[in-house]
Nucleic acid binder design. Structure first.
Lengths: 173, 173
DNA sequence: AATTTCATGTAACCAGTTACATGATTCA
DNA sequence: TGAATCATGTAACTGGTTACATGAAATT
C-alpha cells in the first residue's frame, strides 16, 4: 500500500519492485500480490482504474483512497515497539521510508529518535542473554548473540547519523 | 529440529526457547510447534518417547533419529546463497550455531568464510541500487539503503572476527 | 519467426496465527 | 484456595507458495 501511495501503479509494477529492489521478505509472486490488492480494494483503502480500456492490453492502476491515506498515516504514526525491532528491522526500514515520504522530515526524525532509543534499550537485553549463554558454555550461540549486538549497535549509529543529516537539511534548506 | 538435536526435548521446551531467547522470526505458539513436531516425526527425522508414562503429566520427549541426523548435516553443508543473505540473516545465524554444534569448528569456519564472501559480493549490488535511488532523488529510500550497506559491513566484520577467534582456538586448544 | 516482456489472474497446497480447550502441578 | 505454570493439543481463519493459464506487445 505504501508503494501505491508513492505512485499509483499496477500489480505488475509492484511485482517488479519486489523483484528488482532489496525489499527483502516480500514476495513477488502474483499469487501474493493480486489477492492482496483485491483485499485492499475491498477494504476501501485503494481503488483501481482501468487504463487503456480500449486497447488490448489493459492495466489496473491502483491509487490510494482518502480512507487509505488516513489508515496509512495512522499506521505510520504508531510507536515503535520492542517487538518491531526484535523481529524484522527491514520492516522498520520500509516504515521509515514511507514515514519520510508521507509524513515528512519532522516525523521521520521523530521516528528515528524513537527507534534509536528502542534499540539502545534492547542491547542490554541481548547482553544479559549473552552472559547467560557464556555461563552455559555455548560458544556458538554466544558468537551469534555478539552478532546481534553488533547489528543493533550499527543500527543505532546509522539512525543517529541520519537524524543529524535530516536536521542539517532543516537548518539549511 | 536443530534444537531437538542439541538436546532431546518436548514441544513445551521448544515453545519456551522461542519465547525467552532472541531467536527472532520463530513463533512460540502451540499451533505451530506441535504440528511441526508431528510432521518431523512422520518424516522419520525425529522420534518421540513418553516420559513419566505412569504419572499424570506425561511429556513427549523428542530426539533426532539417524535419518534426521543425516538430513540435518546435509542441510547444514549446503552452500550459502545470495538469497540466504538477502532475506534473513538471522536464519543464517541459526544455521551457524547448529553448524558449530553439529559439525564442529572446522565447518563453522568454512561456513563463515563463505558467508563473508557472499556478503562482500552483495554490498556492491546495494551500492548500485543506492546510486540509482540517488539519481531518482529518493532521499529516504537512499537512507534505508545506506542502512542496509552498513548492516552488511558490520556483518562481514563480525564474521571475520569470529573466524579469527575460532582459528586461534584451533592453534591453542 | 521466436523469444522475452507485459499483464492479469486462478487453484491446490501448505503452514502459521489466534483462540479455545483440558487438566495436572506448583507456588504464594 | 486461587493463580500461575506445566503440558498437550485442536479448529477456524488467514495468507503465502508454486504452478498453471492466457494472450498481447515488444524485442531480437
Amino acid at each position: 500500500m505504501g508503494l501505491v501511495r508513492q505512485q499509483p501503479q499496477s500489480g505488475y509494477d509492484i511485482m517488479k519492485t519486489f523483484e528488482t529492489t532489496a525489499i527483502s521478505s516480500y514476495s513477488s509472486s502474483p499469487g501474493a500480490v493480486y489477492p492482496a490488492l483485491r483485499r485492499l480494494e475491498e477494504a476501501g483503502l485503494i481503488a483501481g482504474e482501468v487504463e487503456n480500456r480500449d486497447s488490448l492490453r489493459p492495466r489496473q492502476v491502483y491509487h490510494v483512497t482518502p480512507a487509505g491515506e488516513r489508515e496509512l498515516r495512522q499506521y505510520l504514526l504508531q510507536p515503535i515497539t520492542r517487538e518491531d525491532i526484535a523481529k524484522n528491522t527491514s520492516d522498520v526500514m520500509l516504515r521509515f521510508v514511507f514515514t519520510g515520504n508521507v509524513l515528512g522530515r519532522r516525523e521521520a526524525v521523530r521516528m528515528l529518535t524513537q527507534y534509536a532509543q528502542a534499540v539502545d534499550a534492547y542491547i542490554p537485553e541481548l547482553k544479559r542473554q549473552l552472559a547467560i549463554v557464556r555461563q552455559e558454555a555455548l560458544p556458538y550461540a554466544g558468537h551469534a548473540l555478539e552478532h546481534g549486538i553488533e547489528q543493533y549497535r550499527a543500527e543505532a549509529r546509522w539512525a543517529r547519523r541520519v537524524i543529524a543529516r535530516l536536521q542539517d537539511e532543516e537548518d539549511d534548506p
